[in-house]
Design a protein around this nucleic acid. Sequence first.
DNA 1: ATGGTAGTCAAACTA
Length: 262
Amino acid sequence: MSFTLATWNINSVRLREPIVLKLLEEEAPDVLCLQECKSPVEKIPLEGFKALGYNHMVARGQKGYNGVAILSKIPMEEAGSEDFADLGHARHIAGKLENGVTVHNFYVPAGGDKPDREINEKFGQKLDYLTDMRDWFKAEKPEKSILVGDLNIAPREDDVWSHKQLLKIVSHTPIEVEHLAETQEAGGWVDITRQDIPAGLLYSWWSYRAKDWDAADKGRRLDHIWATGDISNSGHGSRILRDARGWEKPSDHAPVFATFDL
DNA sequence: ATGGTAGTCAAACTA
């Protein structure tokens, strides 16, 4: 059985319902994981998603900020949600698909502007969030699982437009990269996107603030698809739908895809 | 070094 999964930071699921529907119609992933829904769960517009065959959803939401949801054509039951770093934020939801695969959908804290926890509380919260993820997965020992989401870290030199210029910019600092690596190691996670596309510049986010995001192309790979080692060999076909960054009223993130044959 | 844009929800916060 083969299924395709996509992850997309949508930056308001209600405002961007039209382009979520466009993605579901044109690309038809079996599972779509969304972050930054910025909506209470009961206000997520489900009718159009259901009409396209996405009859299953698990989600956590809050008013105005954060929020994560998994839409699925495959029957799915909720498999819990965690509040790492005790922030009280809706940043994680897990679903277990009928095929036995568990999907973890994360929205890791962005971390503010200054990469110093002494003067910027948000940066400390981001590091603590990753440390709690690490410790949880170390105990949990996940199997037959996929982890996706906006992890808000671009770990590799070719995950950013300029490694040198971003070394002190939150999302690409060595301490964040180290925390992410420890989380990945603790769960035995394999980066499926980079398994498929092992070299070369790869971005999933471009700032709204650029005059011409496409021409400037100052992107970062903040959105990830990982899988546990027991199923990582079944992952293939990774891609990032850069086109979506240029759609009407776009998110600042593009959707990331991978297919798994199980 | 600064300011640039976008979303929520109606001023300030977050990204």
